[in-house]
Write a protein that binds this DNA or RNA. Structure first.
Lengths: 219, 219
DNA sequence: TATTTGAATGGACGATCGTCCATTGTCAAG
DNA sequence: CTTGACAATGGACGATCGTCCATTCAAATA
């Protein structure tokens, strides 16, 4: 009987996909624990439990595997961000808070992901492919913040008020990531959230009512 | 005639000191251009124009040379910071602005130093010695900001208002460094300064008069 | 001037790096 | 069941890594 072309991957393809992902996962784990320098071919294949030739088979080059790993970090960040945005009411103030919560939440900001982000960034000067993903993340985030502040302030997105508010907010969150990176032990997630909301409220006119909404959301 | 023991270094010691510094300088330049990974023994001795055995002679280990290079970055940062602080009037608001100007000024924030700082940070997970200098820098800065905000607000240094103001300010400046790192081409130094001052003014009570002093200093 | 000191040299060393490929083993098509 | 396809293996390869040390040579001392 002629079989309908199976939509689900067959055993071969499944195994291949599993190996592909195992290499990326192993690479990220090693980078988190030992930095980019520790991510040698030998360590990666050891950690993944696969054989030496797999990196060349799946990624052609170790470099390209690292780029894929960086891309996967950026993807995860955005997936989490839009989960928060989609779950929030469609009001600019609520969306703003949702974006901050996504950025400072456990799934984006934790010991493993932060170690990986800073490791990739540190190597970005040498390998601009990494920078592309650090930068892509940043550019999309900047556009989202700019649009949200424009809506919140009732201004066009190219006014100084909007641009400054977006720049300051992004800087604040970046700074909180750096704080976490340097003192993950002492870092207080709720305090970071409170400070960010407080600083943003300070630069917005009383009339937009952000202060009240932010205050309600303080935990 | 018996000569008085020369207080200035003799030719030998001078040459040794020059080589010592040449190795650190070469290392920092390579890290700025090619990242930590590019700083191999071969590259360092090539760049410095010295011979292969010098790293072992002066630093015992390449690792220790990198640590010395990181320490030299932290030293430069603090030297510049205190130059600004010492030049400022002994008033908390002026000192606060001086610290921000030191942090965002050309001598601390430029393409070379930022590339180096982020490279060291990225490798900090692997080699905690680097982290010590990133962290030392941060801790002293944090203490200075906390003391200044305490004075400005007339509160003790352990009140939430003071701690939050210091945390937010440090985060803002960290974030501006990250912005510079990711978009050194598009970065606007004066805009960054304006945003930081604006955000700080927003969280301080009108009564401390920071807004007016900050506004006067906007360029 | 003769001797001692130690800064500086540069090649040798084993370890590890990333890449490549002949071979193996297993799944899917014929 | 046989055969072709291909995911997977793991060792070989030259290049480069960081360390070490026998040697050189100029400066300081006697």
């Amino acid at each position: 009987m002629e079989q309908i072309q199976t939509p689900e991957p067959n055993k071969r393809a499944k195994s291949k996909a599993r190996s592909h992902q195992a290499l990326i996962d192993a690479t990220l784990e090693i980078i988190a624990e030992e930095g980019i320098g520790g991510a040698s071919v030998s360590r990666i294949v050891e950690k993944s439990g696969l054989s030496r030739g797999m990196i060349h088979l799946h990624f052609e080059t170790k470099e390209k595997l690292l780029v894929e790993a960086a891309r996967s970090m950026a993807d995860d960040y955005y997936r989490n961000l839009f989960e928060f945005i989609d779950a929030a009411p469609d009001l600019p103030a609520q969306r703003l808070i949702a974006m901050i919560d996504a950025d400072l939440g456990e799934s984006s900001l934790n010991a493993k992901t932060i170690a990986i982000w800073f490791a990739f960034r540190g190597a970005a000067r040498a390998h601009n492919e990494f920078a592309r993903y650090s930068d892509t993340r940043d550019r999309r985030l900047r556009d989202l913040f700019t649009a949200t502040f424009a809506e919140l302030l009732g201004n066009s997105a190219d006014t100084p008020e909007v641009i400054d508010a977006a720049n300051g907010t992004i800087a604040l969150m970046e700074g909180m990531w750096a704080d976490y990176f340097l003192h993950s032990g002492a870092f207080d997630r709720d305090a970071a959230r409170r400070v960010v909301l407080h600083f943003i409220a300070g630069v917005l006119p009383e009339s937009v009512g952000f202060r009240r909404i932010a205050a309600q959301s303080i935990r």
